[in-house]
Nucleic acid binder design. Structure first.
Lengths: 237, 237
DNA sequence: TCATCTATTTATGTATACATTAATTCATAC
DNA sequence: GTATGAATTAATGTATACATAAATAGATGA
């Protein structure tokens, strides 16, 4: 069991930043973390009242949080049974990866076209090196963290906030499935090579090449995940 | 002035369908329509209390609606000034079109790869024909409607709900700018040719071709719009 | 006249109260 | 024993109440 994935750690400060967060904001983050950390597994139901007691506040801010989670596609709200954590099926994963593939490969293209600064390239390369090193140590959690960092860096460098936000939202939907399959999938050796090739394409400002490389990379990763889920009979995650 | 664009008409029934909608749902739809119809123009501010009176309900459901609109990226909520309709700058439009381009061209690729049924192809062709016919009558609103229909059809045929939802959300963000520039932009003659070529590519199941054609189409459209906004000095829409 | 400090107003964030409606339980009839 | 239906319970959706914090106005001093 990983030592609790550092969940929702990347783009979570989407909201009010400075002043102490409202209860509604705390409720939103708490519930989201419970879901991402699988403490509220897929299919869990939680009544407003229960959540309110658990979080030590009244129903009002809890309800607001639940509405936001619904809007994020993490839960559904069923009239009489509170919120229900949405299971992610392999079909859902396929959808998610199709969109992520389109967006991230567009990001790769954009970054390559604009060109990355030496520092930015160095950061990308460092992430790849960390992936490689972690994999050498058989540290899958370390690999996953570095992989996440690489992808997020790439998306960030594209400089499109809407793209970032969409990627982050879909990434959160896919999170549980990724964690679950991390130790069941084949060693991500090719993945590292793909990333290195992507960095090279960006470095030589080969926009079309960067797009293709990342498109194939993501497509493969998505297919692997979908197949794995199907093969394991994990219809729901 | 167009006879009131048929706003939010495409994928708006995202929520509860049957039973009469809650006040929160009504508030959400009403406010969204006010924004899309430019009755609450960019920069408008609206207090919870004001909105509540206007809609004949209490603050509670109104607040819920505003939270959802914030989550949708349509408004921001400023601690002391109610919700504020977010202006869309040309930089925002560039972001939006970058993402739409990536997603819709992926959709085109997917549809071409899977292949469209005769009926589906006929629907696409009918939309193109309507665009052509409307343009012949100098009916720009008719053209816009047919164009919208074509794009939505394409996205729908891709059969990826998450992709649909993202496209629809970004489309709503871009709506005001599109309406505003409809009569200021050059006649969309090339647009029709692009669409026809896309349908042809889909018909011959040329996935890569379909992607390229639509990618270029959307890129051109986006650049035209961004340039137009800049040229007109419309920093905000 | 201008600046600063205080008091008041006002919008929000949250809690609570209440009506509605769906589910469950219990009783009664067959 | 089963089924029907009434009554009770429970969860939501909405309204309202209230405390807090921010903006404004007003007053006081120079």
């Amino acid at each position: 069991m990983p030592p609790m994935p550092n969940v929702a750690t990347l783009p979570s400060e989407a909201e009010g930043d400075a002043g102490r967060p409202s209860n509604a904001e705390r409720a939103y983050r708490s519930l989201k973390n419970l879901i991402l950390g699988n403490e509220l597994p897929a299919g869990s139901q939680l009544l407003e009242q229960e959540a309110a007691e658990r979080l030590g506040m009244s129903r009002t801010p809890v309800r607001e949080a639940m509405v936001r989670l619904k809007e994020d596609g993490m839960v559904e709200i069923r009239p009489r049974h509170g919120m229900r954590v949405l299971p992610v099926s392999s079909a859902d994963m396929r959808e998610i990866y199709e969109v992520l593939t389109a967006l991230e490969s567009a990001a790769a293209e954009m970054v390559a076209r604009r060109g990355a600064s030496p520092t930015e390239l160095a950061n990308l390369r460092a992430a790849v090196a960390d992936m490689e090193e972690a994999l050498g140590r058989d540290d899958l959690d370390g690999w996953a963290a570095a992989d996440k960092r690489f992808h997020w860096l790439l998306v960030t460098l594209a400089g499109n906030e809407r793209l970032q936000q969409t990627v982050s939202q879909l990434g959160e939907q896919a999170h549980r499935a990724r964690v679950l399959t991390l130790r069941l999938r084949p060693k991500p050796t090719n993945s590292i090579r793909d990333h290195a090739r992507l960095v090279a394409a960006i470095a030589r400002r080969d926009a079309e090449g960067a797009r293709k490389i990342h498109h194939d990379h993501r497509t493969k990763a998505g297919e692997m995940l979908v197949d794995l889920l199907d093969r394991l009979g994990l219809k729901q995650v």
